[in-house]
Write a protein that binds this DNA or RNA. Structure first.
Lengths: 128, 128
DNA sequence: AAAACTGTTCTACTAAGAATAGAACAAAGG
DNA sequence: CCTTTGTTCTATTCTTAGTAGAACAGTTTT
C-alpha cells in the first residue's frame, strides 16, 4: 500500500488514510481477504499515532469495508464488499450534490462534468 | 431562498448555508446581481447567529460567487460566476474522487454512477 | 438631520473534534 | 515464554464551530 498523507489538508489524517485504503479496494490493489498492517506498525510506517490508524480502521469497519478480528488483525472484507443499498445511494448522492452544484456554477457543462467523472473512474480502475 | 439546515449534520452550519446558496445559483433561482439578505436578518430568519451567516458569506466571497459591498450589502456576482480554471477542475476532481472510489467498492458500475450523476445534475437544473 | 441598517471588528466563552502520548490489559501466535 | 494483536483508559494540546454582545463607520431611508 502506497499511502500519501497531506498534513496540512483540511481533511483529517485518519480520513485520508481510510479513503486511500478504499481506493486500494476500488482499484483491486487490495483484494478480499488481504490483511492490513497492525495499528502499531502502520502508524510507525506512516509516521503517525497508533490511535489515528485505529480510528481509520474503525471508520472502515463501520462502513463494512474491513473486518477487525479481535486480537488477530485487520482484513479486507472477505467475499468482497457488500452491494450498495438504497441508503448508500442516497448518501453518495448527498455527498456528490454540492460538488456538482459548484461545477455547474463554474460554467462546466453537463458533458464536461460527465467527462470529468469518467476520467476519475478510469484512473481509479487502472492498477498502478 | 428556501434554506434547510440540518443541525445534527457533520457538515458545519455555515457550510450548509453556503452550499445551498451555491445550489440556488446553479439552478438559476439566484441570478447575477440578485441581492442576499443582510447578515442580521438572514440569521434571524434561519435561527442562527449573525457571525455564522457572515462566515458563509466570506466563504462564498473567497470562491468569487458573491460580492460583498462594504456597508451596503451582499450581491450575487454580476456578469455571472467566473469560468472554471484548471485549478478549479483539479480541486473538484480531488473532492469527487473518494466518493467515486466508495461507489465502485459498493459494486456500482460505471454506468450506475454516471446515471447517478446525471440525475443529480438534472435535479440541480430544474427550478422548483 | 435623525434613525435605521449595513458589513466589520473585537473580545469572550463553550463545545466538540483531531491528534498525540503513555500505560495497561487479555488473547492469539510462534 | 515472549511477542504481537486490538482494546481501553486517562491526559493534554490544538483547532474549528458556534454563540454572544458590543462598538464602529459608513449607507440608506425617513
Amino acid at each position: 500500500m502506497f499511502i500519501e498523507i497531506e498534513p496540512d489538508s483540511t481533511v483529517p489524517i485518519y480520513l485520508q488514510l481510510a479513503q486511500q485504503i478504499i481506493e486500494g479496494v476500488a482499484k483491486g490493489t487490495l483484494k478480499p481477504g488481504d490483511s492490513l498492517p497492525s495499528v502499531r506498525s502502520f502508524a510507525a510506517d506512516l509516521g503517525m499515532n497508533m490511535h489515528t490508524v485505529n480510528k481509520a480502521y474503525h471508520y472502515l469497519e463501520e462502513k463494512e469495508f474491513i473486518q477487525i478480528v479481535q486480537k488477530k488483525g485487520v482484513v479486507i472484507h472477505e467475499k468482497g464488499v457488500r452491494k450498495a443499498t438504497a441508503t448508500d445511494r442516497q448518501r453518495l448522492t448527498k455527498e456528490m450534490r454540492p460538488i456538482l452544484a459548484e461545477a455547474l456554477c463554474l460554467q462546466l457543462s453537463q458533458e464536461d462534468i460527465e467527462l470529468l467523472v469518467k476520467e476519475i473512474i478510469l484512473d481509479l480502475k487502472e492498477v498502478k
